[in-house]
């Protein structure tokens, strides 16, 4: 029983990370209906930046703060200089741009930091939380960070002028522009925010999977599965979806199918949700006029 409980708790901790990555995907998707396939590699690159800053002797929390700022700026720049130029282009064009970004970040990380896996220290230390056998400090920290992230984003999106302007942009860019919202900048802001949230996910996942240029490929699939399961237009759904996916992954992996088919579970989940319930558990169904 303890073993099952342990699997569930570490599933929730990991699920929070998937949820955070899913949340980043949802923020981008809400405003432009793009699925950013480079989200994972951008997060991986941010994690390398954090690692580099820590190696340079900065205290972990300062390094993480700087990393978030860097990730935010990078996300904004990419949106302004690459993605925004293709705003009227067909889906294929944007998918290709995301693939290009994915490849560029991956090779850049390999070139700058090498392809070997590195140990990434958890900002919460490596011990158990309160000497309990069930949960490690990192897992508890992950859950706490996810919760803080959700609350902060909720407050930001609902009670600040900027957050409301971003929501308005996502719902109706034309009207938003007419009431004086700088739509282009809001989109860039969304990208920056998504990149920063991705960086948080990267830093939380790196101590578990080790830091290497391809560490996010599997995690990203789980992140997308989380976002889809929760509904691509529902930020809270992404977190809930992440927790469900994380627990499912751990419990199925430990008791049913073994660890070697974990990615196929995510694949089946993605295809299943897309086919049978494209709006996810918490999303609104979309009706299009012919």
């Amino acid at each position: 029983m303890d073993a099952l409980l342990h699997q569930i708790i570490s599933g929730i901790a990991m699920g929070g990370v998937y949820g955070a990555l899913g949340l980043a995907a949802v923020i981008v998707y809400q405003s432009t209906h793009h699925l950013n396939f480079a989200q994972g590699e951008m997060a991986m690159f941010s994690t390398y930046i954090a690692w580099m800053l820590m190696q340079a002797g900065l205290p972990p929390w300062a390094a993480l703060g700087l990393t978030l700022v860097a990730a935010f700026a990078t996300g904004m720049l990419i949106q302004r200089f690459v993605i925004h130029r293709a705003r009227f282009a067909p889906a294929l064009t944007t998918v290709l741009l995301f693939i290009a970004l994915l490849v560029i970040f991956n090779s850049l990380a390999g070139w700058l930091f090498g392809y070997s896996a590195r140990i990434f220290p958890s900002p919460f230390g490596s011990g158990r939380a309160f000497d309990s056998a069930l949960i490690s400090a990192h897992e508890l920290g992950s859950i706490a960070v996810t919760l803080v992230l959700v609350v902060a984003l909720y407050l930001f999106f609902n009670f600040t002028k900027l957050g409301l302007a971003m929501q308005a942009t996502a719902h109706n860019p034309m009207s938003a522009r007419l009431v004086g919202i700088r739509v282009g900048w809001m989109l860039a802001f969304g990208w920056g925010l998504a990149a920063a949230i991705g960086a948080v996910a990267g830093v939380l996942v790196a101590p578990v999977v080790y830091l290497d240029p391809s560490m996010m490929s599997g995690v990203l699939i789980y992140g997308f599965a989380a976002a889809l399961l929760g509904g691509l237009d529902s930020p809270w759904g992404a977190i809930a979806g992440g927790v469900i996916v994380g627990v499912l992954e751990n419990v199925l992996g430990a008791y049913v199918i073994g660890t070697e088919l974990k990615l196929s579970v995510a694949l089946m989940l993605i295809i299943g949700v897309l086919l049978f319930k494209p709006s996810g558990l918490f999303g609104k169904p979309v009706v299009t006029r012919v």
Binding site: H33, H34, L35, F37, P90, A91, L92, T94, V95, I221, F224, A225, L228, L263, A266, L267, I270, I271, L274, P278
Partner: peptide, 10 residues
């Protein structure tokens, strides 16, 4: 579009 890309990506 993006959904087919996602399924094949996975």
């Amino acid at each position: 579009g993006h959904y087919l890309a996602l399924a094949t990506f996975a």
